[in-house]
């Protein structure tokens, strides 16, 4: 088969249905597009911010022993969350700046840069925030040891390590998959942009 018209005929067999009215589902999507709640980055930012507020409020209102170690612990956790919020905000802003009306080459180039940036974020910065947060929680445990009974301390201590190891395993796996997917995307977009 080397006749373009033959290919064109095959293509043209595709149904040409009646011009539809704008479906309700699309109208709903359009109505919602301005709502911040539709953006995954902003949802993450909201969740992380709430966690930060709970931690700080909990510490200053409920936790009575404000010594150096507990301050260090809370600071580590707060810094980890703030850095993560900053990363999400950066992603949100960069994504907002992608101009869907650009030509394909330019757009593919921008997408490639955006995903390269995401790859960087999934490297050291992500591990930095996770480790800092875990250090914070670990430091808090030294305080729990003082204020909790032996049984409850052991219970929370074991629980902490189980969660930390599970978190480490799943985050590592997730980052590995994410980096692989992003790397393939960057390669594809760079192929177009060249």
């Amino acid at each position: 088969m080397n006749n373009y018209n033959e290919i064109k005929d095959i293509w043209n067999q595709q149904g040409t249905s009646e011009m539809p009215d704008v479906p309700a589902q699309l109208q709903n999507k359009i109505a919602k597009f301005n709502q911040l709640v539709n953006n995954a980055h902003l949802i993450t930012i909201a969740v992380l911010s709430l966690t930060l507020v709970f931690i700080l409020v909990g510490y200053f209102l409920l936790f009575k022993q404000h010594n150096t170690i507990s301050v260090l612990a809370i600071s580590s956790m707060a810094i980890a969350l703030i850095v993560r919020i900053g990363m999400e905000w950066g992603s949100y802003r960069k994504k907002q700046r992608l101009d869907v009306l650009s030509d394909t080459v330019l757009f593919a180039n921008d997408l490639s840069k955006y995903y390269q940036w995401r790859m960087k974020m999934h490297g050291l910065p992500t591990w930095f925030t996770v480790i800092l947060y875990v250090i914070g929680v670990g430091l808090l445990f030294t305080q729990f040891k003082i204020h909790l009974s032996g049984f409850w301390f052991k219970f929370f201590f074991i629980e902490f390590w189980v969660i930390a190891l599970a978190l480490f395993y799943f985050i590592r796996k997730w980052i590995k998959n994410e980096l692989k997917a992003l790397s393939e995307l960057v390669e594809t977009y760079q192929g177009i942009a060249m």
């Binding site: 869907v100 394909t104 757009f107 593919a108 995903y115 594809t188």
Partner: peptide, 15 residues
């Protein structure tokens, strides 16, 4: 342009 670029962005979702 929007269609082509949206298709390209869709790759991320597929992955």
């Amino acid at each position: 342009r929007i269609t082509v670029n949206t298709c390209l962005m869709h790759l991320r979702k597929l992955k």
